[in-house]
Nucleic acid binder design. Structure first.
Lengths: 332, 332
DNA sequence: CAACCGGTGGCAACCGTTTGCCGTGTGCTG
DNA sequence: CAGCACACGGCAAACGGTTGCCACCGGTTG
């Protein structure tokens, strides 16, 4: 039951090990008939190359790691799925790492894995920018849903999306909006706030920011209460989880959504279409983001590019029942 | 920037490579002062053992693979999270594989990874039982949410849970229940149906089965229509996704839940508490299942056990608004 | 016809660890 | 004080591939 090696194949085929090796990893380097013969023998023996032996000398592991800030967040599911499928399609393996919202764990795990993977997908990284740059100097890195000058990145478009969202609220008649911010170290949080504030200024709305809040349902209570103190008629939450928490708290406090307050989120997670009222949110093809990120990583291994690509995947504003005309009962 | 090896450390510390190696992987084998010295030098040089070189000779990769039938199903998130955390805690790496509900892909991926991982967690495997047994002969395997004689397994309790669920429906006054079954190759589907049928017989309810249905929201439409044709006043869906799809379809058809029909699901996914009406479901600590599965796998590597443990994690029936007294409007 | 050349295959040196075995120095026993 | 067990370190052979380099061979070329 001992698995067969390149030596077994070489012996059985009457060639040198180098020929067997080349028949697999560099087919053009051996004559056609020899190659076929070797492959046939290998098949018969059930030979499977040992990835570790291979990695040891070639320094390529055919594995990529995806580090997510919080594996519990449903938003990442699609991202992970897209990445996994793209990796698999190229015969790569996806390693999943949960940073548990901790920059320290994130770094620790990256460190631990450097030798075992060919590159990293850093989704919603909580690292300071300079640390990312430094990291990228030593490793192949693609940052996801964050932009870092000089680094390859894939983000779901959100600046224009925020503008649309604020525009949507403005057109409904809102004149004051509050952004319930995500974690301080979240690039997205900062970026969204900038976009929202800019759009609000353009459209003549008053914009405020409260927070930071953890991007979880549980934090929604505090976020809702904070939103109410601002007197704003519309609240944009950092993500759908937070928004759903806000909806809950508002319902508990007897605040009508959207009659009294409109609520919107980001990510368009599965649950956004199920909560009550259903949630207006900025969605997009998260799976595509994951897919693209892996693709960029794989490409960068083939031909190390001088310029790091910065891809933007389009988003779409999904209007649902949680936003409406202020003061008017829903459904009108 | 070339990463340092055991050889660099050995030279810098003035010892042999074997001593350095042992200082890390077999600390008792070297004298205390030598060990400290070596470790200190290693730290200074930023030495990190190369996992591939290590794996090559030791045949231990410190990596486990988790194969899930469908990575899109939110039910797996908790499972994955629990597994990831437990693996990380022991310095193991979790590789994620999506079988996309295809036994072929499942097998293919397992085959591809055999050399790169120490063992497999097979969650909701769609393989025929004999294939699993054969697989387990060649690899370390723990099956999750499935039981296979002779194989290590972790399942969330569901027999008693199904009994409770049927009991709950009976106590509400239902006399006929329909099970909307999951995929034909799903062990869980078969097992749940057996439990439901058994409980129904005991309690004097009529039980029918419809399906199989894909365990997705999209299949809920067909499942709901099928359920209505049976005339049963209560439907138990194979999982929450299907149940949510059923709720949607029933709402579209103007069927009141639970006044006209009660609906229940399995898994207690996040969305079950958000949909309308909120969903009665059999939940449990899925993260614990993942954690336990990894733990069993890791233990089995330390001391190969003669008897394969079969762990059952308790479940709990979560009563929400989707089940009620037949014929009576909700909230009474 | 000699020189040359591209296409193939083999040799052997790595890649970075682990580990069986051996040699040495030390402390203890009788 | 001889004899011995033992703790500790070193040597070197794996583990299973990849790859630079060389040798060979038949066919072109001048």
């Amino acid at each position: 039951m001992k698995s067969s090696t390149i030596y077994d194949v070489a012996q059985a085929a009457g060639v040198a090990t180098s020929t067997v090796s080349r028949a697999f990893s560099n087919p053009d380097r051996v004559g056609a008939v020899t190659r076929e013969h070797v492959l046939e023998v290998a098949r018969r023996l059930g030979y499977q190359p040992n990835p570790h032996a291979r990695a040891l000398v070639s320094r390529r592991t055919r594995t990529v790691a995806m580090v997510v800030s919080d594996i519990t967040n449903p938003h990442f599911f699609e991202l992970i799925r897209g990445a996994e499928m793209r990796a698999k399609a190229s015969g790569y393996t996806l390693v999943l790492v949960n940073a548990e919202e901790s920059p320290r764990i994130e770094l620790e795990q990256i460190h631990r894995l450097t030798r075992s993977v060919d590159g990293f997908l850093l989704a919603a990284s909580r690292q300071p920018e300079e640390d990312l740059v430094q990291l990228a100097a030593g490793h192949r890195v693609v940052v996801v849903n964050r932009r870092v000058p000089g680094l390859a990145s894939v983000v779901l478009e959100h600046a224009e999306g925020c503008r649309q969202m604020v525009g949507h609220l403005a057109s409904l008649g809102h004149s004051s909006v509050v952004y319930l911010a995500g974690p301080r170290s979240s690039w997205m949080a900062a970026s969204r706030w900038a976009a929202i504030r800019g759009a609000a200024a353009e459209l003549g709305l008053r914009a405020q920011r409260m927070g930071p809040f953890a991007p979880t349902v549980a934090s929604g209570g505090a976020a809702a209460d904070a939103a109410l103190t601002t007197g704003a008629t519309a609240a944009i939450a950092h993500n759908d989880l937070l928004a759903i928490g806000v909806l809950r708290r508002l319902a508990d406090r007897g605040v009508q959504v959207p009659a009294d307050v409109s609520v919107a989120g980001f990510d368009d997670i599965f649950a956004a279409d199920l909560c009550t009222p259903t949630l207006t949110t900025l969605g997009g093809a998260h799976a595509d983001v994951g897919r693209a990120a892996v693709e960029i990583l794989l490409n960068s291994m083939e031909q190390p590019r001088d310029h790091a690509p910065e891809l933007v995947v389009p988003s779409e504003l999904i209007l649902r029942r949680s936003t409406g005309v202020p003061g008017r009962p829903p459904g009108q």
